[in-house]
Write a protein that binds this DNA or RNA. Structure first.
Lengths: 353, 353
DNA sequence: CTTGACATGAGGTACGTACGTCATTTAGAA
DNA sequence: TTCTAAATGACGTACGTACCTCATGTCAAG
């Protein structure tokens, strides 16, 4: 005997299949007493709806959308790859994932973009965007229309009923701090922190965590105010040149941006060739290469595949009103050194023949 | 229009549903030319079988077994929890996971245990056991009966057609080496390496990786021969006492065992209270606590939930003869410091009501 | 030409659920 | 009691696939 079915449930609850159906799908026309009788029976025989069969019968596909920033850095690229991959492996489960790009730095237009989604028969949205009042309101509107929402990578702490899939940035900053404190040994000097803009919540949280640990464990080091480059390569070069040529020797650099290309070039151009501990975020082809050649000492990572899959699971759970396994949805703050970089291991299973 | 169905496939291939069925399920009675015609049509319309529907029709449950060592340490406990959890979340997918315990250190009896499994209608087995000829042969026998096998945590490199779900232990050892080299700063002295037995393949690989890095980056440190404690608490205390009271100061300790309780007690009893860098494996309640209180400096981790889920996905893929997404099945070597320890974040989704 | 082996088609039932229609029962008010 | 609306039951069809039976087609050996 397998799991109990709706038939078993009907028998135990002493009602017909039709009533079971009405209760399970929250259709009208059932007395409260009967609803409760059915619910008791559900618990009694530990009934769980067979979602494969349910979806089959509904012949419904879940439409999920990832709303990503419209600029392209390597991190976003990895996310898009992971989404494509997920879309393929989830085709079996009647889940369709698409990507929509939105202007991350224009809250009004972004909010409009979000509003558009609700018209398109979308069932769930994962939003990666800086927190703004406009976005928060747009999320509420989605919520009002019964569309599931997840904050993806960037938290939306003020949007209610929106789960967050991503890392605790303050903890990430602390982790970088700890590594910086330990990797610099007993050296004295200056630590640079670079970011695109200190306006962004992520930057602020990471910086806060970083400072906490530096203050606690590395008072020998002087942590400079964040260097903002506003995404401008010329400015990046300038600020690094200035900082690296100041009196105090630079012993550590924390790169908060996803895109580290310009910064690394500036460091190589103006800094000493050896001995600066450089720590960055996100494992991309570029950061990988730089871990290998030693120009980066550590990279703080959130597993992109995990981020995407977790978001999808959470969205699906919200849509079908089921529960998720909390421990599985926790995104780890990973530390990657040259030694524990993922290798390309050979594919494990065979293809369909 | 959703995905193509068997009907569409039949139309395109110019054959009947019955023939499609025979081809898809490798039933006899179809000419080779016809099989190829169907296969061409599959590619042409990009047909993918709907496994939910297929499983529904089969009304078959997949029986998976995790064969775990019969001793109980915290790591095994975590694995068992993860399996229980997975079993619940996979009930929807008609996957049943059970745990069987086997005598890890008695290859003959373990092999018998494995043989028993094939009688029980088991479809797939994840085996966590040291590599021995007996086990390898038992795995071949499973294989011969068409039962999918995965080597879990401990690799079985000589068992053919057996995938491995776990980490590269040599890389893990290298990672520990790098951390040890950097965390000890400029200090000089001795590094201890403790293991249950240097016989085990895992220990050997980890040690090898560790030594490679120490030789390369920390020649100032003297790495001692591995201290074997054979799982005996008394012996653990003895060897640590002797090592810690020798002439050269101990600056670092690498604990390879899952169970670190005895070792840590000995270190606290006989070593200096401060300044020794201690690195261990696996994130358990105990190692967590010791990261927090500072008596451990770093823990090398493989995500247990990921291990379990990945094994299940790989087994399922083998059984249904489908493919897995390689990047998703790669188990990361994670570094955990106090700062990036997983927090208990509140459950994200609601329960069924 | 017959025979038989094999290849293929046609059609049904089942899996567990969704969802529709229509008939019937029940409860509460008149 | 009688009427009415609400609650419930009975039943059919559908989703995409598996798997069974039986009929029919084809081809080559005898």
């Amino acid at each position: 005997m397998g799991r109990p079915t709706t038939k078993d449930l009907a028998k135990v609850a002493g009602v017909s299949l039709a009533t079971i159906d009405r209760v399970l799908n929250a259709r009208p026309g059932v007395r409260q007493v009967t609803v409760e009788r059915v619910n008791r029976a559900i618990k009694e025989i530990n009934f769980v709806r067979d979602f494969s069969a349910a979806n089959l019968a509904r012949s419904k596909e879940y439409e999920l959308v990832f709303l990503l920033p419209d600029h392209d850095d390597e991190f976003i690229g990895l996310i898009r790859e992971a989404i494509t991959e997920a879309n393929q492996s989830l085709a079996h489960e009647r889940i369709n994932v698409t990507v929509v790009r939105g202007p991350a730095n224009d809250p009004h237009r972004l909010a409009e973009e979000i509003d558009t989604l609700s018209a398109l028969g979308v069932d769930g949205v994962a939003i990666m965007a800086p927190e703004t009042p406009q976005v928060r309101d747009a999320i509420s509107r989605l919520d009002a229309r019964g569309i599931a929402v997840v904050a993806f990578v960037a938290n939306q702490p003020n949007a209610e009923s929106t789960s967050f899939v991503g890392i605790n940035n303050q903890a990430a900053g602390r982790t970088v701090g700890q590594l910086m404190a330990r990797f610099t040994g007993e050296k004295r000097g200056m630590v640079l922190v670079q970011t695109e803009t200190i306006q962004s919540r992520d930057s602020q949280e990471r910086r806060l965590g970083f400072d906490t640990i530096m203050a606690k464990y590395a008072q020998r080091l002087k942590v400079c105010p964040s260097l903002e480059d506003y995404g401008d390569p010329v400015r990046t070069a300038q600020i690094f040149k200035a900082a690296l040529q100041s009196d105090l020797p630079v012993v550590g650099i924390y790169l908060m941006n996803h895109d580290i290309h310009e910064a690394m070039q500036a460091i190589e151009a103006f800094g000493p060739s050896q001995g600066i501990v450089v720590i960055a975020h996100e494992l991309t082809p570029q950061t990988c290469a730089r871990l290998v050649d030693g120009s980066l000492d550590a990279v703080i990572t959130q597993d992109v595949g995990h981020l995407v899959h977790s978001s999808i699971r959470v969205l699906k759970a919200k849509i079908t009103n089921t529960s998720t396994v909390a421990s599985q949805e926790r995104i780890r703050i990973e530390i990657t050194l040259r030694e524990n970089m993922p290798e390309e291991k050979p594919t494990v299973a065979e293809n369909i023949e």
